[in-house]
């Protein structure tokens, strides 16, 4: 029993850490550009498929190289998508809705492309690390530990970027006061595209990390989109810290509900918690009004 609960807590922590990485990306786009990216889940699958393709290349045999190559590919892809699909809409009056529609269209396009290119069967990635820690009935795989620390590392790196680099500071500036950012001469259009690109890297990396445990499927991103959305709304739209707390709460909740009631109950419980939270605090855990 104790060991079982320990397992559940560990599983919640690990999933929570990857969710945190991905939810921070989603809340970042919302915080900076007030746009909601419906293709976010498909970018998760894209990360997995890019890793799958990279592992197919003969000279790639470890995750270090995969991360090293996948990150710039995702970054360029995200930047390009923002510039070509999202940026032109921003000049219109009701652009928020149009951005939702076009990213939804992009999600369907990507998912169907995955299906055509890779087929509908699951793809798997080799484990990131072999072996594990053992002690009696207790087992903790090195892979899980690695995933946890990489996700946390990614979030810390992102935090460092926001606080210590010029581009990071300009991202925060646009999120906090777009008019002020324009006054000091920050190129808003570039910041929007950069934000979109960074969040694409974050969710794509999450896709690579989780694909080792849950496989890659063409439609697998929707589950992630829903969870990232739940976490973002639960934590407070646009609040990065709220998103972090919410990600771990959702990870834990999912693990405990899955263990106690069965996996089919997890989404139902998540939405019940979300709706209850929003009924009491419509702005989410740490969000602000307006």
């Amino acid at each position: 029993m104790v060991i079982e609960i320990a397992d559940v807590i560990i599983s919640g922590l690990i999933n929570g850490s990857v969710y945190a990485l991905m939810a921070v990306g989603l809340t970042l786009i919302y915080g900076v550009s007030k746009a909601f990216n419906f293709a976010y889940g498909s970018f998760y699958s894209l990360g997995g498929y890019i890793a799958f393709l990279l592992f197919g290349l003969s000279f790639i045999n470890n995750y270090f190289l995969v991360f090293l190559l996948a990150a710039p590919i995702l970054l360029v892809f995200g930047f390009f998508v923002e510039k070509v699909l999202v940026a032109p809409l921003r000049k219109r009056d009701d652009w928020e809705i149009k951005v939702m529609m076009i990213t939804l269209g992009l999600a369907l396009f990507l998912d169907n492309s995955f299906q055509v290119i890779f087929g509908s069967r699951m793809k798997s990635l080799p484990p990131f690390l072999e072996g594990g820690f053992e002690g009696g009935n207790f087992y903790l795989s090195h892979q899980d530990v690695g995933i946890f620390f990489l996700s946390i590392g990614g979030i810390l790196l992102f935090r460092w970027f926001l606080n210590n680099t010029r581009t990071g500071m300009s991202v925060r500036a646009v999120a906090q006061n777009p008019a002020g950012a324009q006054i000091v001469g920050i190129p808003k259009e570039f910041v929007f595209a950069a934000t979109f690109a960074i969040s694409t890297v974050m969710v794509g990396m999450g896709g690579i990390l989780l694909a080792q445990k849950y496989f890659i499927t063409p439609m697998g991103g929707w589950d992630i989109l829903v969870k990232a959305w739940v976490i973002t709304a639960f934590g407070g739209m646009g609040s990065i810290r709220g998103g972090l707390y919410a990600a771990f709460i959702v990870g834990m909740l999912e693990a405990f509900v899955g263990w106690y009631f069965g996996m089919t109950w997890t989404l139902i419980v998540l939405f019940a918690v979300l709706l209850t939270t929003l009924a009491v605090r419509p702005q989410g855990l740490l969000g602000k009004w307006g």
Binding site: M169, Q176, A179, A181, I183, V184, G185
Partner: peptide, 26 residues
């Protein structure tokens, strides 16, 4: 050429120093 706004348009969740550093963004 720089504008100083009547309603100040500062970055509320940033420190004084960060606000100043962003003033030197160009």
């Amino acid at each position: 050429i720089t504008y100083i706004a009547e309603n100040r348009e500062l970055f509320p969740q940033m420190s004084v120093l960060e606000n100043l550093k962003l003033g030197a963004y160009s």
